[in-house]
Design a protein around this nucleic acid. Sequence first.
DNA 1: TGAATGACGCTGG
DNA 2: CCCAGCGCCATTC
Length: 108
Amino acid sequence: MPRDYFQDVYDVVRQVPPGRVTTYGAIARYLSLRAGARMVGWAMNSSHGLDVPAHRVVNRVGVLSGKHFFGHPTAMQERLEAEDIQVADDRVVDFDRLFWDPATELTV
DNA sequence: TGAATGACGCTGG
DNA sequence: CCCAGCGCCATTC
């Protein structure tokens, strides 16, 4: 059973400030995951029930690619809107401005 | 052991 | 940004 980078990914996601979003690739690069961004998303799949704001993690263009895994298709969007993040057409509005890069904001 | 899969990313058109 | 294709690699069957 995996456990290694899963906790690392969760730890980074928890540090994402409310109202901000990050990407799978950014997390992968910050943790130097050779596995790539795919495994970051896969790790989030195991974050169900945990205190992990997976809704703040989107793909490189700000698309809510994982909304389908939130039980209800609109659950992820509503969570983002609850943090004043505007979502239109399953995409984060002003994603470029709301993007939170751990490698930059967290200053390795 | 190997093929198929995927909450992705990059490049090229 | 849209579309198509290739690369990435842990996990699963």
